[in-house]
Design a protein around this nucleic acid. Structure first.
Lengths: 119, 119
DNA sequence: CAGGATCCTGTAGGATACTG
DNA sequence: CAGTATCCTACAGGATCCTG
């Protein structure tokens, strides 16, 4: 119950979450799924810049980690749908607050981008 | 006002925030500062694994971006203090929800780590 | 204590082309 | 449509040692 212990535990929880977020695309993909996109191309189009390779990897990992459910309907042509699990949705609140924060601080962040590393 | 436009705007805000989070250490550093750590070594010790090089870079960037205020008190030996700005604090809520999420999903995330990529 | 300077490497992730 | 397969590289970030 010492303060140090508390901070350690906080930090661990925090780093778990950071680890979970992982790469560049995890969050946008979760967001897209939570917005109702289900088909591979549909998700792809909703995230400008992502490549099929990256999306494919993300979805595979997310399936392994029970973040999405992949369903194959095989009427020809094959139809495949991805759906976010509850676990996935549980992350939605954080994403929403990230969106809000980003919106609120648009200018600041934008300025930062501009002045980034110019020598 | 179309739905697509909204989603685009959401995504932009989200990616701004993600960009802001940036590297591996930004969030832990903000967290440490918000927990009241002020001295370089103090911050360093509160974040196991970080190197002086990384902390130094983070703090410098954060100062440039008005996330911290650096104050030099020059009684010998020189004393230096870092303090989070309001802007920095504004990110605190998100960090807190990350901590909560991480805590709540500890097992899941932990299992994920273990089973990560073993062929 | 508060950092700076160097050297080095892994790997995330981009580009591109192909398949059933 | 729904992905796989290759090839390739920039750069984030680790390890180490040094300085005022």
């Amino acid at each position: 119950m010492s303060d140090t212990r508390n901070q350690e535990e906080e930090l661990r929880s925090l780093q778990d979450t950071l680890y979970f977020i992982g790469g560049k695309w995890r969050i946008p993909v979760i967001n897209s799924l939570c917005n109702g996109n289900k088909r591979f191309r549909e998700i792809e189009r909703s995230i400008p810049g992502i490549t099929t390779r990256m999306l494919s990897k993300e979805l595979k990992e997310m399936e392994m980690n029970k973040l999405v459910k992949r369903t194959v309907y095989d009427d020809t042509p094959v139809l495949i749908e991805y759906e976010p699990t509850e676990y996935c949705h549980s992350f939605g609140k954080i994403i929403q607050s990230m969106i809000d924060w980003g919106r609120e601080h648009r200018e600041v962040v934008t300025n930062k981008k501009k002045s980034s590393l110019k020598k």
